[in-house]
Amino acid sequence: MSTYDNQLTEMSEEQFRHNQKEKKVLKTLAHIGIYTVCIIFTLLSLIPFWFMISNATRTTSQIYGKSLSLVPSTHLVENYKALMKTDEKGQASSSGTQNFDPVTGFRNSFIVSAGATVLAIYFSTLTAYAIVVYDWKLKRAFFTFIMAVMMIPTQVTAIGFYLMVFRVHLNGTLWPLILPSIASPAMVFFMKQYMQPALSLEIIQSARIDGAGEFYTFNKIALPIMKPAMATQAIFAFVSSWNNLFLPSILLSSNAKLKTLPMMVALLKGDIYKVNMGALYLAITISILPLFIVYFALSKYIIAGVALGSVKG
């Protein structure tokens, strides 16, 4: 180290200045490149939302004439009324039955997504902890097994799953959409991969010496260290559960009170030839809003520039 320092001081002042200048130019160039890339990606990420919001203010006829428009129109209130069936105008279903009920939809979607996410996060971390921290005979086999389960294509197993649910008459309840996430192989895999370098076994050892029980150590020491991993996985789990449509449609439809938001949106498409497109886009926008809120609430873990997980404060 000292030789290195010496070399630095040996450098002539002129050269030092020159280097600094060069560095500055390079940095500016790098910044131009970085910001250009970032701005392009930002536009690519945001434009779809703009199209969606813009279409929520347009009429069916306008949308069918030009399916994408950057310029919003003036029919937002009309679309809202049609969506909420407060007005019999336009192509809205002429019935009094309300398909789109955002409050109920939000409640159901939230119970399912939050429930599934919490269970998946907690039990996946716990399972990963079992694999990383403890030495037990079947550990390797167990991990290999989890990996294998993760690799099975899900489409055909879904058939077996819903048939099973129908057979035990759990259809029409939210449980079959929440409870299975206790066993989330991909998330266990992530937690294990993250935990391996992040969690030092010495800390656990010292906790044990201090007389902490195993559950206590897990809840009070391991979980805080896993926070960034849990936050990112929570976002992914919540989003995918929220957007899930196929299984909820099959399992929940028989109970009219248990429709999720995406199911309500799907029903708006109903008869392809009688869709109120503006109201549909408004519904899609509304159904995404809660996701935004959850995402932004959890995103501080993504934004933070410091290692939240580190034990050092």
Binding site: L126, S181, V188, E214, F218
Partner: peptide, 18 residues
């Protein structure tokens, strides 16, 4: 044994649903 205990919920979830 804690390895078994901590991985039990996953195993049960798997047996029941998957």
């Amino acid at each position: 044994k804690w390895g078994y205990i901590f991985s039990a919920p996953f195993a049960i979830g798997f047996l029941l649903f998957m």
